[in-house]
Design a protein around this nucleic acid. Structure first.
Lengths: 193, 193
DNA sequence: CGCATAAGTCAACACGTGTTGGCAAACGAA
DNA sequence: TTCGTTTGCCAACACGTGTTGACTTATGCG
């Protein structure tokens, strides 16, 4: 055995390899989607043997699950003035997507496989809905308003980071904020039409 | 030869099979994406031998190209009052997406493969940009405004028809129009922020 | 009819995939 | 040191894929 620490976080000798695999997996899943991201390619990027991936993560699904764990770290919108919330959310999303290729990977896989779609549904339910709950006046409209935000924000991510439509890629960060913030603001707080 | 028609549209004896293949291919590509939609499965759906697919469409890419040819048939927005254009476009898109699984297929594949993404870029450039050109005051802003529309409309399609986020699926057609039309309207015609 | 051509079937190839088990080297506690 | 465990590499398996070519059957023109 390897245990001589009182905490639960045992530091294994193979943790370097494990991290290298996860990093390579994230890149490949983000760039190629689930099917085209082969274990052999991931292993090659991580400079180890494909069999190591199996030993440490069981199978390809297990690797994906380990590589893509998402915490959107959405801000506490309760502490904001109500007219700021759209702007803050859009800025937060942009920062998130550009810092972390995990989200691109998740979106690509979500568009391909049933399991990936289920994953996105869970993130929406567990992380975006609560935000809407903090801001939205009528509780009955919370799912609808959160859903509308999702269409706009995921649409931006799709066209900018996956499909790469040139005019969307060309948009500057401030432009995106200026255009989308009012939309999000309206979806969350304006009276329903 | 088979020709005894003066028009260019020769009616081959195999056209029934060809259409069956295309129909099955569209369904499979829409449901499974490019990789998981296997030629064997498509052939089985069409009740023919996989080799027929190769004979008639060359290879898998050729089949995809033949199965997914998109004409958005966007309306002539020049003939509308300017404040109607958002509503008309959103309605048109909804009708389009629900009539034709080709678009879902294209979106799924676009999210997976480089070739699919290029296809979507072409459609955006050749079909959506001209619409913005008809409506938008400042020519310099045309790509930006069309791009913004694409983020919202494709985001709706993504969350509703691919990811199937429950609250987005639950939205009624009129609700979607009521919420999204003002957004599209604003992206196309409002002064830039 | 006869026959060239198209339509369709069958079996197989070559390849890449996820996955497995065996074996050598490095390591760390005793 | 000694020895059990961990880490890593290698070769291989079973399977499904796109794709090919040879073969049989149907069709329609002369």
């Amino acid at each position: 055995m390897n245990g001589s620490d009182t905490t639960g976080t045992t530091r294994r000798r193979s943790d370097g390899t494990r991290d290298a695999i996860l990093t390579a997996a994230r890149e490949r899943f983000a760039a190629d989607g689930y099917e085209r991201a082969t274990i052999r390619a991931i292993a090659k990027d991580a400079r180890i043997d494909p069999s190591m991936v199996m030993r440490y993560y069981g199978n390809k699904e297990g690797l994906f699950a380990a590589a893509v764990s998402v915490d959107l770290k959405l801000p506490d919108v309760g502490a904001l003035r109500r007219q700021e919330v759209g702007e803050v959310l859009v800025k937060h999303f942009l920062t998130l997507w550009e810092a972390n290729e995990v989200l691109t990977a998740l979106l690509r896989v979500g568009a391909t496989s049933e399991a990936g779609a289920a994953r996105m549904q869970a993130i929406f339910r567990d992380q975006l809905l609560p935000v809407a709950r903090q801001v939205c006046p009528d509780p009955e409209q919370i799912p609808t308003r959160a859903a509308l935000c999702a269409t706009q924000l995921l649409g931006l991510a799709l066209t900018r980071y996956v499909l790469r439509l040139p005019p969307v890629v060309a948009l500057a960060r401030e432009e995106i904020v200026a255009w989308l913030a009012p939309t999000i603001q309206r979806y969350l707080t304006r009276p329903s039409p």
